[in-house]
């Protein structure tokens, strides 16, 4: 395959960035998108240019490291996958492909496609956990949890923290990310004790970090590689209002 790439290059957060054109030939349709980027980088290095910086690690869609806008869509045109799982067979020979970083005020750019998503860590830090220190746990089967509720908690817990929801949202809202953790924990009996404080603090942190508000366009769910449902956001709002009234 031949490709015309237009890739966002930016030295650091202070510098101006721009789309730079690259032509690439000999791409195999079974390559993953990141293997295509590796091929480009290999050529750039040998030409004495700087390779395109991007985050990636597990390359099997679970670590949440990778993420870029491909033709304007987070993780590219196929629903339900991360960009490391996107394959070149999804593109036509001779296609022009735009590659840009996830953009949000709360995700400052580091270089090229590499961004700073530490705001997500700080949201979890604000209360996205159960305070169960090592050694204090009770026997696991003393706490039965219905099959369906365990499965539902898992559905929420499956978030990989990649940031596609934020990059897709026109308000750069982190509601889907935050609500997934709020819902995961509040669905489980062991997570209910801290539920009120948790939701208030996590939502508060979301605002501090500069993420926008959710205006229910549901675009985040469409581009979430794990298929995290917007019903989590409804649950977070319910929990938030309940906690605000009762607390």
């Amino acid at each position: 395959m031949k490709l015309h790439l237009k890739i966002w290059r930016q030295r650091d957060a202070q510098s101006n960035g721009a789309l730079v054109d690259y032509d690439l030939d000999g791409i195999d349709q079974h390559m993953s998108f990141l293997e295509m980027m590796d091929t480009l980088n290999g050529q750039l290095i040998l030409n004495g240019d700087m390779p395109v910086e991007f985050d990636h690690d597990c390359r099997e869609g679970i670590c949440g490291s990778c993420g870029m806008m491909v033709n304007g869509q987070a993780h590219g045109p196929v629903a339900g996958l991360t960009v490391c799982q996107l394959h070149m067979r999804e593109f036509k020979d001779g296609a022009t492909i735009y590659v840009e970083p996830f953009r949000a005020a709360a995700f400052p750019l580091k270089r090229d496609l590499k961004i700073d998503r530490s705001a997500f860590d700080r949201i979890i830090q604000a209360g996205g956990f159960i305070s169960a220190s090592t050694g204090s746990a009770i026997e696991a089967n003393n706490l039965p949890i219905t099959h369906d509720m365990a499965e539902s908690a898992f559905d929420s817990a499956a978030c990989i923290g990649c940031g596609a929801c934020v990059a897709t949202c026109k308000n750069s809202s982190a509601a889907l990310f935050t609500s997934a953790k709020v819902s995961h924990l509040v669905k489980l009996p062991q997570g209910k004790l801290e539920a009120e404080k948790r939701v208030i603090q996590m939502v508060g942190q979301m605002d501090v970090e500069g993420f926008g508000h959710c205006s229910n366009t549901e675009a985040c769910e469409v581009k979430c590689p794990q298929g995290i449902s917007v019903l989590n956001i409804a649950m977070m709002n319910w929990e938030f209002n309940k906690s605000s009234l009762l607390g």
Binding site: G135, A140, P144, A150, E151, Q190
Partner: peptide, 22 residues
């Protein structure tokens, strides 16, 4: 033995039978 207890306490959503047990 303790690890499963610890993980459940942290909220790890292990698979459950319909009776609610692991």
């Amino acid at each position: 033995l303790n690890l499963i207890d610890q993980a459940v306490a942290q909220g790890v959503p292990f698979a459950r039978e319909y009776g609610g047990y692991l």
